[in-house]
Design a protein around this nucleic acid. Structure first.
Lengths: 204, 204, 204, 204
DNA sequence: AGTTAATCGAGACGGTACGTCTAGTCTTATT
DNA sequence: AATAAGACTAGACGTACCGTCTCGATTAACT
């Protein structure tokens, strides 16, 4: 008992000087600011260190690579996904989510997402972490809606939720990454309805 | 007179030593061999030059960047898309094309495609050329089928062919690039039917 | 009350935690051990701190630089110079001292002396302290003999004692530091007689 | 016959772009200039590269280490030893050489020699090359005189020439390196006679 | 047959950024 | 106040490639 208490009481603090939150924030902030203006490729650890008034080893102590840092800086600033509005028509709800996603990925933020996924092609760790921290967050509302729809029988119970999400979002990221066509208004208007219909929602 | 003739006869040949086809092939071959084993990121111009017994400027004379060369080496070896079989059910034909694509993108070749698209995120030229030389080729059969279907009224005339292709192929490249889920048999079995149905083919 | 007593009882004790003699010894011992095996250049404060289980600031609190510490560690272990045997022939006594010095400087200890003098070239403090703590000690017997010889008229009174010591010991340290020739037996046999004779001792 | 000719004719030129003499001179010159003002320890390869308008790898291509470069820069500018005047009294000639050496080692040049020998304590290659390129040159005249003296019987044939040189020059470098006493006028006046006498030159 | 001009190989060049190392200082909880 | 631990700023280290340049040698069409 006592030991459990004392163990709990232990503030889990390693000895030695604790890491400087100020340095961490300075690094992340500088990186985020650079990402606004520059392609990720042209951002360098040297440059971040200099601009953040920080030693290079301090950066390497906490991030494995430039890309891990960039991702962190991006995700820290990311606005969390808003939960789905409960009392809305499911079809309409999904369509709205997709429209929001497309609009969100226009502009610099979409470019950054594309660049990170691009960098991730040569570093699986990046991709894995980006998936859990970005995609899982961003897709959570749609996932919840789909699972709810399966529960109430509006969607075939055998439809794999992951597959459904791929059908809904795949075309968007395909355009974002291959850039053969823009994420324009026509796309925003016409895509969501088509892909939501592929889920074959029965009238509830 | 003679000069006019001779000028016409001149096969647009610049004076000086003509470029060595042998060098070109050696460069492309070496690059292709390296791509089999190594991630594109770790391939270097220096390395190619050394392995191909070729001077670095010889490479730069004919390709702008490592990535352009890699793409060339990849596309040169790519098997051309087979045309769609004419007298088959359109739905089935599209499903088969998608299944073939998924199977094709498993393995090293899919990895290379992903890596090239990844590199392309920081170099729009790459992406543009990859689109015209890879995607347009690879998607040509599906495009023809869709346009044929529109002609004969099986598909809504107002459906943008590009959008249709995105709906069909988007989920595949989404999985290829984000790697959240594998391109496995379950995906091969279940995806194509779903997305083809999103095109709402009416019974002819 | 009690506090007053105890305060009085405190024997010249500065407030705060007293410096740890254990830490000092651990640092010196670790350094000495490292010097046995490694060239001084490759010894680092970081390394000493880690091996001695000591914080870096604790080292810096007591020694100005790596080199000061190394010198301390070396001198602490140095065997003190034995005094000259009084009733011996002066010439022979000097020759014996020189022979002893040469033999002493063979092996690791001579290497360390050379390394310290080497480091001293870029740090006058080191050299100065090494002179007073090493050379003055090591040369004391020879200095005493020479001064005694001057007193009794065996050596020209005008011969500067420092100059005499340079003539005697210069060639040895010259070889030690420039390493153009080894401190071998031939050197041990032939040098001392020659340089002692340069002092022109008259038969007493 | 012909082959011999053609072999001779071969300009012994390696393929590839020849190294830039301009870069070499810029590096050596910059280094030499830095050595005038700064202690060797505080000179950095980065600094040289920047000041010489040269890439760091260019320096590393041709010199193993900062110290090798510094030595090269020093030796390239060193005035070659003047040959001994032939028809002079041998004793006087040696004394003059020693006086010249002492005066030469006063000032910055002597400091540099000391610093190089100091650095050499942690790098035997440096010391070895410095010996062959500096000491052998600088001592050549004295060596010739001593050998000539041995030939004509003025010096004991059994006296090792290297030992003789150590006796003559050892005290000078001892003072230069240990710095316990300055290389002052008194030293210049009194040392040479003493050490030359230790060679026991008989009247020719 | 000789000239001309662009090619080829090789590899050095000025640069940039890398990731590591070490120095010496600072911050924390503990003693 | 001194300790052990370890994070901090700072900046040099030596390496890897970049893309360009400079060579001598080669190759063919055009004098």
């Amino acid at each position: 008992m006592t030991s459990e208490y004392s163990e709990n009481a232990r503030p889990l603090r390693r000895p030695g000087r604790p890491r400087s939150e100020q340095a961490r924030l300075s690094i992340l902030g500088t990186t985020a600011k650079m990402m606004e203006d520059l392609p990720i490729r042209s951002i360098t650890i040297d440059g971040i260190a200099k601009a953040a008034n920080v030693g290079k080893p301090t950066i390497y102590r906490w991030w494995d690579s430039k890309c891990a840092l960039v991702m962190d800086a991006f995700l820290e600033r990311m606005t969390p996904a808003s939960p789905p509005k409960p009392d809305t028509d499911i079809t309409q709800n999904l369509v709205n989510l997709l429209k929001g996603t497309i609009e969100h990925l226009r502009g610099r933020e979409g470019e950054i997402v594309a660049e990170i996924i691009g960098e991730g092609q040569s570093d699986p760790h990046i991709l894995e972490e980006f998936h859990t921290r970005f995609f899982c967050q961003i897709l959570k509302p749609a996932r919840q809606i789909i699972e709810r729809a399966k529960e109430i029988g509006m969607i075939d119970q055998n439809l794999d939720t992951n597959l459904a999400l791929d059908i809904l979002y795949g075309p968007i990221y395909y355009r974002l990454l291959v850039r053969h066509q823009p994420l324009d208004d026509h796309f925003t208007q016409s895509l969501p309805g088509r892909v939501v219909s592929a889920l074959q929602l029965s009238a509830s």
